[in-house]
Amino acid sequence: MHIKQELTERHVLTLTVDNEAGTLARIAGMFTSRGYNIDSLTVADISEDHAISRITIVTRGPPPVIDQIIAQCERLIPVHKVTDLTEAGPHVERELALVKVRGTGDQRVEAMRLADIYRARVIDATVNSFIFEITGGPDKIDTFVALMREVGLVEVGRTGIVGLMRGAEGS
C-alpha cells in the first residue's frame, strides 16, 4: 500500500483577526493539526488601536480542502473574516525580498544590470557585495533570486506575500 497524493491549487487567504496573545499560534497550529499546508504567512496589526491584525496565508490543497481550510479558520473565535483572494477575483499580491550577492568585476556589473531591469534597489553595498531590495509578485521574486544565484547569491530574506482585492471595495 502507498500513500496517495492529490492535485492541489494555490490559494491566497486573508484573515482579519483579534490581535491578542495566541491568535497566530491558534491559526498556524490549526493548519498543522489538520494537515493543511502553509506556503507563507504574514501578519501585522492594521487598525489604529492595534486591536485587529491582518494575516495573509498562502496555502495549497484540492478545492474541497481549501473550502475546509476557510471554514476551519472561520470557526476560530478570534477570526472575524476570511477572504479567499484567489476565488474573490482580481487582486494584487506583493512580497518584499532582501537579496545579498557577493562578487567582483563582471559578476558585480551583471548583478547591478539585472537589479536595474527588475527594479531592485541597492540598500547596502561593500566593495564586494550588495543587498538588493525587491518587491513584486512571488514569481518575479523567484526569477530574480534565480538570476542572482548565477552571479553570486549569498542569502535571501522574504516576507511572504500580502494581498488586496483590486478596485474600490474592501474585502
Binding site: P64, D67, Q68, A71, Q72, E74, R75
Partner: peptide, 11 residues
C-alpha cells in the same frame, strides 16, 4: 450550525 462540518467528507 457549524459550517466546517458541511462538505467536510461528503459533498
Amino acid at each position: 450550525i457549524d459550517r466546517s462540518s458541511i462538505n467536510k467528507t461528503v459533498r
